[in-house]
Design a protein around this nucleic acid. Structure first.
Lengths: 225, 225
DNA sequence: CCATGTGAAAGCGTTCACAGCG
DNA sequence: CGCTGTGAACGCTTTCACATGG
């Protein structure tokens, strides 16, 4: 069991390593990995130490070996089927986002309440009617879902997804979801992110922003998005 | 200066209060606010105590008064001009997202490298060529920007935005940005969020997921994006 | 009596500093 | 000698528990 904060940084390291491999870089020291990932070098070493000892003292980490280990620990050696609910602007952006499929997350089913969209193909997914949600998700054995609906229906959709067997949810709707404790939920709330920026911008206008006092990214969320 | 963790929760409380006001609820106790926001009641009281003493013992908080105070402290009593760079799927979703303008964040200028998009209207923003970025941002006095470009150009765009006077950035591109320390940066990285879910899903498959051990939202990010 | 506001305690996450090893 | 791996220190966040006050 890795600390959650570490889990959030591992994909970042993975991204850096993948980039370095494309440039045929064979080893990487914690300092460089830290710089490229925008974190402290001690942090990198501590994070990686949770995975085991894959570095060589005096040298650094074998780029390819470390990439494999990160990939394995994150469970990225397998592919995941993902459902998407809501084919509005955001939903369509998500279904077409290559960053998901590149990493083995395949949106295989989409759902929308608009009859005009049902039956059409969106990226790699066919649009289904909302009424089919439970059946399709259960039949396909889908465990992960993206919610990109209006806030008002998000809780109901989440309940139905969970009832159909989904165990991990990524919610883009600006609302709090109440779910059983064994369900993994992550929230991407763009309006909140902007409001946080607004707060610091507001402080700055008031002339009170301490130097370096940014509500910066890598500690707060991953942007969390 | 509020703690950053508190700043991230205030917009949530604001949302709850706004909902309650629509239902003409006059007061709200910390327990109820906590439940509706998905956090601990002590957390709510501690957070609100940073703003001052706006509650009444034995009663709770005056919904309207508290909403005003939150709004004021977050700097939401003023409007902000926002620039958007990148009008791909995600950029178009962002420019049409009502959650921003509802809260006083107005996307007044958009930029894209595709000549076919330049000159067209996207939501409330006119699409400009990339070459105009510096000039338009400086002329309009824009302090906040959304980056929804491919990862490869995000750093260059960020540098140009900062050079033009932008001081707060919300980056959706899956890459780390290096910026001067006085610039506020927040990251929304959907691929990372999915990979975090993948990790816990992977654990679950391995039968090692502790009960209640979800990589849940409201502490880690936020969800954050 | 009930809910706020707050010290104090507990829990995490980050950073430091250095021993240890290739 | 250089960089990893890690115990220990530090700081931030959350939670508890209760005194305080309408």
């Amino acid at each position: 069991m890795l600390p959650e904060a570490t889990v959030r940084r591992l994909p970042l390291y993975l991204r850096v390593l993948t980039g370095a491999l494309e440039e045929h870089q064979v080893t990487m020291a914690s300092d460089e990995l830290a710089n490229r990932a925008g974190v402290n070098a001690a942090q990198v070493r501590k994070d990686l130490s949770y995975l085991g000892s894959y570095g060589t003292r005096g040298v650094g980490y074998d780029t390819e070996l470390l990439r494999q280990q990160l990939s394995r620990q994150l469970g990225l050696t397998q592919d995941y089927k993902v459902a998407l609910v809501g084919l509005g602007n955001l939903g369509q952006a998500l279904v077409n986002y290559r960053g998901f499929s590149q990493r083995g997350f395949h949106v295989v089913a989409a759902f929308d309440s608009d009859p005009a969209k049902v039956g059409r193909q969106f990226g790699s997914a066919t649009a289904h009617a909302m009424s089919e949600l439970g059946e399709v998700v259960a039949r396909e054995g889908i465990a992960m879902a993206l919610i990109a609906t209006p806030a008002g229906v998000a809780q109901d959709i989440a309940d139905r997804l969970v009832a159909a067997g989904v165990t991990s949810l990524l919610n883009f709707a600006p609302t709090v979801l109440n779910l059983p404790p064994d369900i993994c939920l992550r929230q991407v709330d763009m309006a909140i992110e902007l409001q946080v920026l607004g707060y610091y911008e507001h402080l700055r206008a008031a002339g009170t922003l301490a130097e370096g006092g940014n509500g910066a990214s890598r500690r707060g969320q991953a942007a969390r998005a």
